[in-house]
């Protein structure tokens, strides 16, 4: 396992990636404030290499305090390629509806609150993922496109995150950040899982990135 870790990124490269993400998230927060009119506080990102088979357990350890979770998942495609999983705390959907003033825009008929919740999570998830992933890609001179987001609303952890979604043979670069909204009681985690396919390119890109500072 140690061997594989070394094959993907060295500890120095991880450090550069960490630094790059600090810059990216700093800029994302400013962009996010402009788009959704509220401050999102993104923590210093944490990077870890791990076997894909260990991912479910890793996710579980992070979200175990949540009663239910809301999950937005989006694949991103570029030379930087992978899967973004955004996990919101229980009740986040309803908080975000108020935060985005969706309830004033949309007339609520008989039963659309869950649809509204779903769409709001999708929208905010889409924006957060776009801001973070897009910024990292931009700093690495890459452009990514996204698949439409998939949403799981108020599910138990087991229901929302299944073990079989990734190839267990792969090594994943997991980038984790926790975020909270300045207003409203919304917290969560963003996990970016990129497989070793992106590894070679990522190493090159990181090298180029750090060269501008040398």
């Amino acid at each position: 396992m140690t061997m594989q870790k070394e094959q993907i990124l060295t500890s120095e490269e991880i450090e550069i990636l960490q630094e790059l993400m600090n810059i990216a998230f700093g800029q994302s927060a400013a962009d996010l404030a402009e788009v959704i009119d509220t401050q999102v506080v993104l923590s210093v990102p944490f990077i870890k290499l791990m076997q894909v088979a260990d991912l479910p357990e890793y996710f579980k350890n992070h979200v175990k305090d949540y009663k239910n979770i809301n999950l937005v998942e989006q694949k991103f495609w570029g030379r930087f390629k992978g899967d973004a999983l955004l996990v919101f705390s229980s009740g986040a959907g309803k908080e975000l509806i108020t935060l985005l003033k969706h309830d004033e825009e949309v007339s609520l008929e008989s039963d659309p609150v869950d649809i509204l919740e779903r769409e709001t999570l999708m929208e905010v998830g889409n924006i957060l993922i776009g801001a973070c992933v897009g910024k990292i890609a931009e700093l690495l001179q890459d452009v990514v496109t996204y698949t439409p987001p998939m949403v799981a609303v108020e599910k138990g952890y087991q229901e929302a995150i299944s073990g079989g979604r990734y190839d267990p043979e792969c090594t994943a670069i997991v980038l984790k950040t926790d975020f909270c909204f300045e207003e409203g009681d919304v917290t969560g985690f963003l996990f970016l899982v990129t497989s070793n396919d992106s590894g070679t390119w990522l190493r090159e890109a990181l090298k180029l990135f750090i060269e501008q500072y040398e």
């Binding site: 962009d31 402009e34 788009v35 889409n126 924006i127 897009g134 439409p148």
Partner: peptide, 14 residues
Amino acid sequence: RSCKSVFKFGNLCF
């Protein structure tokens, strides 16, 4: 908001 997020982040919006 959707237009902004498309121009700013290259997002898809629905």
